[in-house]
Design a binder for these strands. Structure first.
Length: 921
RNA sequence: GCGGAUGUGGCGAAAUGGUAGACGCGCCACUUUGAGGGGGUGGUGGGAGUUUUCCUGUGCGAGUUCGAGUCUCGCCAUCCGCACCA
């Protein structure tokens, strides 16, 4: 009886579907475990062999947790709104919903073949109105909330309105765009429009003018994480900065909590660091500098982290976009400043980035006064100061800041050193160390002492205050696109007005074309009846991250029509215990999701303040491309080893017609018409291809499709091999030729059960040796799964099976636990063998076998360690020590004895895993 | 420039501070058969020696230790993230 994986896999996949084996139900008496994959965007290209890596890992873990008695929630769905389907729609006129539907069907088919234990009854799609109803709901909640800084929580906007009515802005500490001051009387006298404008300044979802990333080719704005090096992440089109009014989310209000709460998460340090970096907290001070433009004096506020260096301020710098530029430009300098601003504005984002270290700037014509020295310093304008950070204005201390230094050098401004013995003749001294000098009351202090001392002084004299600044900006939340969630907001007399909850979902309207309108409006401008009682509805749609921000909550209660998630479901499933996905979402989805969750937490809709407890980033699987070498000007191809003798061009060749780097010549001739009559110069009768490790992509012809692997080797082999390739978190190349190893392993497992004439399993008692192999395996597999070291777990299986197979061990007592151990990795074959052993329930419901610790230590628990033929000392070993530990302990003790003891060791006391004491006389 | 990660055979990779290279691929030899990417056995870091064996070896250089692939410090290389954030 051969291992017929095709039949077996089909059989068990339909069995699982029919019996809803993996359906999860809330069961308060049982411990829960929530395992989540980052849901895919269903692209037209389908899955390649790299995509399921994380899914396989999470599936193994889910199945393992089930065997350990947990009630496991392991759902899957689709991030179905997005640009590619829409771009395709623009080109073909096909509705994005149709394309998306088709792609999802294909994804599902591919996923099903791999044998995942998803609870498909909980599937969600972000483009489904029943789903995006709750995305819109969350938006309305954010629109209807503000952030109370003193309570560090989101609160209903009604509370803010009530206190405006009572006492104006007095006592308000709320996150806002710009600080406002008014009395209750002033508030009450405002028109509805004025009130609306004021409230926009506080809402968590708000409309505001800001400098945005505008991508002309895509016709939409993009969030910071959707732009890389001046190009859009999707499509790679150039992006420019533009001032526009957009919907935004006040993510910045949560910056402190987003940063602090990272500490309790089980994420990798590198990922946490990426987020810390992105959020970018710095402690410093705001300081007031008096600035004169000739006829008026202003209080200009700047932010600095180096309050200790105020005595070294020799000039001030404004960002070109700063509102101070207009105020402080003197009539004499007006022309020069205007010219400079025009020059800066002309530059694309791309140019700004590439010219990062070119010094540019212009003098404003105004002067500011150093609040500590009373000295007059010039105010300059330069693009090296960013409008969006701090106050858009800085005090420049060229001696101790390299950027200020470069600027001072370029424009010949004075440089005053403030730290004893530092040399600023060539470069600035940026380090926060040394003894202060030239600094009045700070002289003699170390920098570390001087910073707080300077801030204290400034606070006491009312010229500044402590301030924490964040790099994290608010998220731009509107996109001028069709294929996204519509905003449930209309504009009544120009006032943004939320639609009632009961009217949700606000469904995407049908439109004739998916392009922007002729007047430059977003595609929804084409929709008919896109209004509420004649008032226009918002025409932008929400960005991709809207739908993916709370999807993990919806899985807990996917069919609930009256809440995002019921209190019962939420308090049972709580949050994601294990989240597996790529590192590319570090500063996008993983920030937004945390923000979204915290917002819902503040309002009491969810019970956990973090969405994802443990997170693992699986590595990328790269492609292994193959090349053929065409001799220039001919249709002759020379084998890799001989190519140096010719002038050749390297051509990518489809890896599916190459085996072990040997080209299938016939298949190659059929591959493309121009190769039909290709000739070959062979070595040893074969055509050897070159290879390279590259990204897996269609254009490199190195895409390996999981369906093909399932066809030739089976899903179980695919699963095992993907794990066997190397550590989960590491990037590694896919190379199909290595798959034979795991394929052989599974066949060998099969042959332990089946001989030529059928089942050969016996009820014989296993030997001590066989039991030892089994128990060592149990221990290894358990610890490896728990530490996500799946590659070594697979190796351990191979070693154990080799040993058992060698002894022709087909004993039930060994095989039964072996099947259970194997089932998370290779579920189909495990089910089949489990059934062969006479069980009529899925192996899913078995329990993970315990290993017997005491087993392996032999009769005596005292080991004699000898050296140079003489017994040197004895080791007491507790009976519960596994054999493998004993061996390594004795070995290390033997080594130790050579040096430490010289014969004097009396006794070594050992406990499992640790040497406790060595007694030496 | 800042931050993080990685560096071990021909390849993917293993090694609680204790015999480096487990396991798998590939390769070599033998073997078996109903030889269509079959099953089994043995070998395989480099160098030397017909056997027992010896020397050498984890990017480079120091250090800690009886003992370092592993810990510490300094370089070098590769990859990733951020990048005028005051």
């Amino acid at each position: 009886m051969d291992y017929n994986f095709r039949e077996i896999e089909k059989k068990w996949q339909s069995y699982w579907a029919e019996h809803q084996t993996f359906k999860a139900t809330e069961a308060p008496s049982r411990p829960k475990y929530y395992v989540l994959d980052m849901f895919p965007y269903p692209s037209g290209a389908g899955l390649h062999v790299g995509h399921p890596l994380g899914y396989i890992a999470s599936d193994i873990y889910s199945r393992y947790k089930r065997l350990c008695g947990f009630n496991v929630l392991h759902p899957m769905g689709y991030d179905a709104f997005g640009l590619p389907a829409e771009q395709y729609a623009i080109q073909t006129g096909q509705h994005p919903a149709v394309t998306t539907e088709k792609n999802i069907a294909r994804y599902r088919e591919q996923l099903d073949r791999i044998g995942f234990s998803y609870d498909w009854s909980r599937e969600i799609r972000t483009c489904d109105p029943e789903y995006y109803k709750w995305t819109q709901w969350a938006f309305l909640k954010m629109f209807g909330s503000y952030y109370d800084n003193s309570r560090q929580a989101a609160r209903p906007i009604e509370e803010l309105i009530a206190s405006f009515e009572k006492s104006g802005t007095d006592g308000i500490d709320a996150a806002c765009g710009e600080e406002k001051h008014f009395t209750a009387a002033q508030w009450n006298a405002m028109s509805d429009k004025e009130k609306s404008d004021v409230l926009m300044n506080y809402r968590i979802a708000y409309q505001g003018e800001t400098s945005v990333n505008w991508c002309p080719q895509l016709g939409t704005v993009l969030a910071n994480d959707e732009v890389k090096e001046g190009y859009s992440v999707r499509g790679g089109f150039p992006v420019e900065q533009k001032k526009m009014t957009q919907w935004q989310l006040r993510v910045s209000a949560y910056a402190g909590r987003l940063l602090d709460d990272l500490d309790d998460l089980e994420w990798t340090d590198s990922l946490k660091d990426m987020q810390r970096n992105w959020i970018g907290r710095s402690y410093g001070a705001e300081m007031i500098f008096k600035a004169y433009n000739g006829d008026r004096e202003y209080d200009m506020v700047i932010f600095t982290t180096r309050a200790d260096t105020v005595f070294g301020v020799t000039f001030m710098v404004l960002a070109p976009e700063s509102e101070w530029v207009a105020r402080l430009t003197s009539p004499e300098q007006k022309q020069a400043v205007d010219d400079y601003l025009a020059e800066v504005k002309k530059k694309t984002e791309r140019e700004r980035i590439s010219e990062t270290h070119r010094v540019t700037g212009v003098f404003s014509g105004s002067w500011a006064v150093n609040p500590l020295t009373g000295e007059k310093v010039p105010v300059w304008i330069s693009e090296y100061v960013l409008a969006g950070y701090g106050t858009g204005a800085i005090m420049a201390v060229p001696a101790h800041d390299s950027r200020d230094y470069a600027f001072a050098r370029h424009f010949n401004l004075p440089i005053v050193p403030l730290i004893e013995g530092c040399d600023v003749s060539e470069t600035s001294f940026d380090a926060k160390e040394g003894i202060m000098c030239n600094s009045g009351f700070l002289n003699g202090m170390t920098v570390r002492e001087a910073i707080p001392a300077a801030i204290d002084y400034v606070e006491k004299h009312g010229i500044g205050r402590r301030k924490v600044n964040y790099r994290l900006r608010d998220a731009i939340f509107s996109r001028q696109r069709y294929w996204g969630e519509p905003f449930p907001v209309y504009f009544k007399d120009g006032i943004a007005t939320p639609m009632p909850f009961e009217s949700l979902p606000l469904e995407l309207p049908e439109i004739d074309e998916y392009k922007p309108t002729e007047t430059g409006e977003p595609p929804l401008g084409r929709a008919k009846d896109w209004d509420v009682d004649g008032w226009p509805i918002e025409k932008s749609t929400m960005p991709g991250f809207a739908g993916s921000s709370a999807y993990y909550l919806r899985y807990m209660d996917p069919h609930n029509g009256s809440a995002l998630v019921s209190r019962e479901a939420d308090s049972y499933w709580r949050n994601v215990d294990l989240y597996i996905g790529g590192t590319e979402h570090a500063t996008g989805h993983l920030i937004y999701s945390r923000f979204w969750n915290k917002f819902l937490y503040d309002l009491g809709y969810v019970c956990e303040k973090e969405p994802f407890k443990k997170l693992i980033n699986q590595g990328m699987i790269q492609g292994r491309s193959n090349f053929v070498y065409r001799i220039v000007g001919t249709n002759r191809f020379v084998s890799y080893g001989l190519k140096d003798g010719y002038e050749t061009t390297e051509i990518h060749v489809d890896v599916n017609i190459v085996h072990n780097d040997r080209l299938d010549i016939e298949a190659f001739r059929k591959w493309r018409p121009e190769f039909a009559d290709a000739e070959f110069i062979l070595e040893d009768g074969e055509y050897v291809c070159g290879y390279a490790i590259e990204k897996m992509s269609k254009s490199m012809y190195n895409v390996v499709n999981p369906d093909m692997v399932c066809d030739t080797y089976g899903a179980d082999t695919l699963r095992l091999y993907e794990m066997f390739l190397g550590p989960l978190e590491q990037s590694k190349p896919w190379d199909t030729k290595g798959i034979d190893g795991v394929s052989r392993f599974l066949k060998r497992v099969w042959r332990m059960f089946y001989g030529r004439d059928g089942l050969i399993v016996t009820d014989d008692r296993p030997s001590a040796e066989e039991l030892k192999t089994l128990h060592r395996l149990i221990l290894k597999v358990k610890t490896d799964i728990e530490s996500f070291s799946f590659n070594t777990a697979v190796s351990a299986f191979m070693i154990a099976v080799n040993e058992l197979y060698e002894h022709k061990c087909s004993k039930r007592e060994i095989l039964e636990p072996l099947v259970i151990l194997l089932s998370p990795f290779a579920p189909h074959i495990s089910e089949e063998l489990w059934e062969a052993l006479g069980h009529n329930e899925s192996v899913t419901f078995a329990s993970f076998p315990e290993y017997v610790e005491a087993y392996t230590v032999e009769d005596s628990c005292t080991y004699a360690v000898s050296f140079n033929g003489k017994t040197r000392f004895t080791v007491d070993l507790p009976k519960t020590m596994p054999q493998c530990d004993v061996e390594s302990h004795v070995r290390s003790l033997e080594q130790t004895s050579k040096y430490v003891a010289g014969g004097n060791i009396i006794k070594v006391i050992v406990v499992p895993g640790k040497i406790v004491n060595i007694v030496v006389k």
